[in-house]
């Protein structure tokens, strides 16, 4: 077992007619899509098309946003995440997330990884250390930080921090990973390293990748979904296998988007 979640193939993620508004201001208007276990779907679209809002639904992180209201259903592994019987903590264990900016906890590198494990009572100290090492290796960070695990995590570079966050998310062996523009705050070099780490995860976990880079979508995703902003919120205009989407977009908006991305 080379990786923490090698045994898990990921869960099916399904969105049906998901609509989001913030205090009455619409952000997403009825998006329906599904990601089969272990596959990666890239959510692309111009800014304001509601990509991030969609990405915050499966782990209900959107609950933390003031005034946010979600309609429609989101299913993880067949279960409606907004069902009153769902335990949010359990759900978020199952559905990990990476943010646009890396957010490390204000403590050491080692403790950043140890805290989630301890919180969920996953093994004794030695087991936890082993799992932390495994996760760090999985994101290609072990060699870089092995000698300074007790140093503050905030001292790491942006790319290292983001990989630490990825490792932290992987520790809990999530079935779904939500990636909200995980490389957009990084310089190109750091972005490439993070992307490489994500590449290694393909097929092992279900991933929803929000990105504004079509090129990245092409490299990382099996399928691409294009959201487009309307006055009633972002709408899904096209959903295709990644290669198809890039080579032969069907709708005019998708054509324009692909052409624009190629030109830009």
């Amino acid at each position: 077992m080379g990786m923490a979640m090698a045994a898990v193939m990921g869960a099916r993620l399904e969105l049906r007619e998901v609509a989001v508004d913030y205090g009455g201001v619409p952000a997403v208007a009825g998006v329906t899509l599904a990601i089969e276990p272990g596959r990666t779907l890239a959510l692309v679209g111009p800014s304001g098309s509601g990509k991030s809002s969609v990405a915050q639904c499966p782990n209900r992180l959107i609950d933390l946003v003031a005034g946010a209201r979600v309609r429609g259903t989101v299913r993880v592994d067949g279960r409606d995440v907004r069902d009153p019987g769902v335990d949010v903590i359990e759900l978020r264990r199952q559905v990990g997330m990476l943010f646009q900016r890396p957010v490390v906890f204000p403590t050491t590198i080692a403790r950043n990884l140890d805290l989630p494990l301890r919180e969920h009572r996953l093994g004794d100290a030695a087991t936890r250390r082993a799992r932390a090492e495994q996760a760090l290796r999985a994101v290609g960070l072990w060699e870089e930080v092995a000698s300074r695990l007790e140093r503050p995590a905030a001292a790491l570079s942006g790319g290292q921090q983001q990989r630490l966050c990825l490792a932290r998310a992987l520790l809990l062996e999530p079935a779904v990973l939500l990636l909200d523009e995980p490389c957009s705050s990084l310089d190109p070099l750091a972005a490439a390293v993070v992307e490489e780490a994500l590449q290694q995860l393909r097929g092992k976990v279900t991933m929803l990748l929000v990105t504004h880079s079509l090129a990245q979508a092409g490299r990382l995703a099996d399928d691409v979904a294009l959201l487009w902003p309307t006055e009633r919120g972002g709408r899904l205009v096209e959903l295709q296998p990644a290669a198809e989407f890039l080579a032969r977009p069907r709708t005019p908006l998708a054509k324009a988007f692909v052409a624009g991305a190629a030109a830009g």
């Binding site: 782990n59 933390l64 943010f99 805290l115 989630p116």
Partner: peptide
């Protein structure tokens, strides 16, 4: 910071944690 609270939530932390 709100970002760290969100990160904690994403790590499935309980409120106490």
């Amino acid at each position: 910071p709100a970002a760290e609270r969100a990160a904690a939530a994403a790590c499935a932390f309980s409120r106490a944690a």
